[in-house]
Simulated assay, not measured.
Amino acid sequence: MFKSKIIYIPFLSIIFLLIACSGDGEENDTVSPTLSCPEAMNVSVDTFSNGAVVTFTSPVGTDNVAGSVTTQTGGLGSGKVFPIGTTTNTFTTRDAAGNTSTCSFNVIVTRKAPSEDLPYFVIENPTPSGKKWAKIENLSDEFNQTDGIDRTKWYTKPDIASAGWFWTGRPPGLFIEESITVADGKLKIEANKLPTTKIINGKSYDYSGGIVRSINQCKVGYYYESKMKANKTFMSSTFWMMTEENACPKRLELDIQECVGELTPGADAWAVSGKFDQIFHSNAFHRTSCANTVETRKQGSVITDVKNWSEYMVYGFWWKSETELWFYLNGKLAYKITNPTTTFDLPMYYNLAVETYDWNPPHADGKGMEKFTKEERSTQYEWIRTWKLDDK
């Protein structure tokens, strides 16, 4: 009896020893795998593409114990079409003990910047078959002069009777030439508060802006576009065209874009609800004249993704025909005004103005400008380009 117990105890010890040794592997592995992703990938596509095929080598993790597996847990696989924007690809390595490591990298697909050789159209190209666009140089400007504005293309004096211009601003905003500069590759029109109130023809002016008009005419069939950023003040940022102020028998105005930088507490309710500080808004006006006593208009608008002052946007207008007015935002057709209240059949002139509106009055205490820098008070035009269709 005693001998059999002696034999049994060493046998159990051997079994326990084997079990303990077998547990020294996976169950005690607390070391995470090693996994490293590539740097972000930047891909540029033409303006008519929605994405790009992107290939890459998928990362594979390593571990101190054989048997780890790496899988993609987010994003798109190599060879897939990546959309415009940022796609985050995520990979995870898991070892036999359940330890994991994760890494990610971005694939950033962007459209190319607007070309100087073609209107900025995105996704859909509306160019008619057999036609091509040609830039009209005397109605286009990259604003890269070092000696000021190009006087062969633009007027900066508000009242030029010989050219049919008389408007000097809507009170309390006065147009002054000193507000207009060309610098850093941009045309800038500054909004500001005048040092003292000015009385002109019985009207009071407390604020200053400016107006730039083209010397040359805009015509039916042309395409018009500007890369522009609004100022941040209660005053306007605009890109439009009109006939001479004393035109007769018909006086036309076509607003491609008009907005304000901020809506003041005194702003009209319709401007607040319409988000006129975050809008692409256009008007087709039949103004009063010697032969028209009633002003009429049709308009169109869309809300933009961000405030108009927060980034440059490309505002475009195709004067397709006398009754077809097409408006583009950042290269995409935003809306059309068809069959306006009169035919738009007369040449017009570019107008770029920073002005005041009665529906968005200044702050009642007269303050507001001082909180902005000169740069923030300035509407900025990076370029203006005008195009006509020619045969290929």
Rank of each mutant, 00 (worst) to 15 (best):
F143L: 08
V54A: 10
A163M: 06
K198N: 13
T288M: 02
E116P: 00
V354W: 00
K198W: 06
S129N: 15
K232D: 07
T181P: 00
Q145E: 13
P119Y: 07
F82T: 05
E177A: 10
T110H: 05
K198T: 06
S49V: 05
L187C: 03
E26T: 06
V220T: 13
T57V: 06
K388A: 07
P362M: 14
F234R: 13
T100Y: 03
L333K: 15
Y328N: 02
E177T: 11
V43Q: 03
S273E: 15
W318D: 07
E26N: 15
S68Y: 05
G67E: 09
V81R: 06
W319N: 11
L174P: 00
N201W: 04
Y312A: 08
G130A: 15
A364W: 05
I176L: 11
N50M: 03
L389E: 04
N144K: 08
G23R: 11
E124N: 14
K336T: 14
W165L: 01
R94D: 04
Y205Q: 08
D305Q: 14
L18D: 01
I180P: 00
C290P: 09
K203T: 08
A134P: 01
I215Q: 10
F317D: 02
A247Y: 04
T356A: 15
N50F: 02
G75N: 02
E245G: 00
F2E: 14
I7K: 13
D24Q: 15
A247M: 14
G25H: 14
T73G: 07
E137Q: 14
W154E: 11
Y120D: 03
T373I: 07
T88D: 03
K227L: 03
E27C: 05
G148W: 12
V109I: 13
A163Y: 02
A52T: 08
D345G: 01
L252E: 12
T356P: 01
Y357S: 10
S78R: 08
K131H: 07
D159A: 15
P10Y: 15
T196W: 09
G67F: 05
D147P: 03
